[in-house]
Structure formats: C-alpha cells, structure tokens
C-alpha cells in the first residue's frame, strides 16, 4: 500500500499512472458489477418465461445452430483482438493498438449485422416481440445485449479518433483500457446467452 502514496507511478502501465485513472478503472469495475445485476434480471425473466410460447414458435423450432455459432465466434474473436489491442498498448505501440481496435470494431459490426439479420428472419417467420412471453423476453434480453454492443462500437470509434488526435497518453490509455473492459464484458454476457438461451433452447 506504500504505492498509494504516489500520485504518479512510472513503473505501472500508462493507464494506471495517475490516481485518477486508477479510480476510474476501479469505478468501471463497480459499474460492471451493476451490469451483471441488470442482465441477471433479464435472464431470470427469460428463463421463467421461455416455455410460454403461446401459439408462436418454440425455441427449438426457431433457433439455428449455424447462425448462433457465427455470432458467437465473431464476438469471441473480437474479445481476443481487443485483448491484443491492450497488449500492444502496453508495449507502447500506437499503430498495433489502432490496428487491433479496428479489427475489433469490424468483428463487432459483423456480430451486430448477423444479429439484426437473425431478428429480421424471426420476424419474417412471424416470431415478433408481441407473439409470446418467450419471444418478448427473448428480444428484450438479447436485444439489450445487442444495444450494448452497438453502444460499444460507437464508443470505440470515439476512442480511436482521440488516439489519432492525441496519441498515447496516460489519459487516452486509461480510456482504451476501460472500453476494453466493457468489450470483454459483453462477451462474458454473450457466453451466458449462448449457453442459457440458445443451447438450452435447442435441448429442451
């Protein structure tokens, strides 16, 4: 704890250099804890209602393995490339950081594209938010995650613009690190959507 006395510590990675940055990062972890609670309520609603399909299709009839797997692999790979971006940042390489952030963005955009196509496909099959309790809770849960990913894409674009304008500073490094936490977290949520919504839906 002797370290806490230093306001500026040269031995740490850029994003941890100032006390303000360290507190920002800790604060973001607290926010992620609240996000876990938010998604927990949506998962609870979905898991309570997912067999209430009314006159609409069941999960088993609706879900397609291939589409779900493509979305899963796109998001998982984007989480990996986002990790590589932070790795490059810690080596002090701005170009590597920007390259991997851009790859992450493209994979994220690919994920959203496939998700929107999936939703449109469902609606064309007559499976809309109004069809059944299963579909209402499905669209709210998966849609909330998709909205988070869309927000993450916009956020990451802004961070890239700042990096281009200001370069790697303790401040921009901290912002990159925080957006990376957000991005990885979205993959954590998706792992549970993949497992509890799609795989479980295809089993039961």
């Amino acid at each position: 704890m002797a370290e806490a006395a230093h306001r500026y510590d040269e031995t740490m990675p850029l994003e941890y250099r100032t006390q303000e940055s360290r507190l920002n990062i800790l604060g973001f972890w607290i926010f992620l804890g609240a996000e876990v609670a938010l998604f927990a309520t949506l998962f609870a609603t979905y898991l309570v209602l997912f067999q209430r399909t009314g006159s609409g299709p069941t999960a088993k009839e609706l879900f397609e393995v291939k589409d779900v797997l493509i979305e899963t692999l796109l998001l998982l790979t984007s989480s990996f490339t986002c990790g590589l971006a932070v790795f490059e940042m810690r080596r002090g390489r701005l170009s590597g950081l920007l390259t991997w952030l851009l790859v992450t963005l493209l994979l994220g955009a690919g994920f959203i594209t496939f998700e929107i196509r999936e939703f449109i496909h469902y609606v064309h099959e007559g499976a809309t938010m109004q069809t059944s309790a299963f579909l209402s809770s499905f669209f709210v849960l998966v849609g909330t995650h998709g909205a988070h990913v869309s927000l993450g894409i916009g956020w990451m674009i802004l961070i890239i613009i700042q990096l281009l304008q200001r370069g790697l500073t303790p401040r921009t490094a901290r912002k990159v690190f925080i957006v990376s936490l957000y991005w990885h977290f979205l993959d954590v949520v998706w792992i549970f959507i993949f497992t509890l919504v799609y795989l479980t839906g295809m089993v039961i």
Partner: peptide, 15 residues
C-alpha cells in the same frame, strides 16, 4: 465481481 455473480445466481435461480 464475485458478489455480483452471487446476486445473479440468486436472482436467476430464485426466480
């Protein structure tokens, strides 16, 4: 994070 996952488990399994 451990506590938030605990809350998640209670909310989901409890519901």
């Amino acid at each position: 994070m451990a506590y938030s996952f605990f809350i998640a488990v209670v909310v989901v399994a409890g519901s």
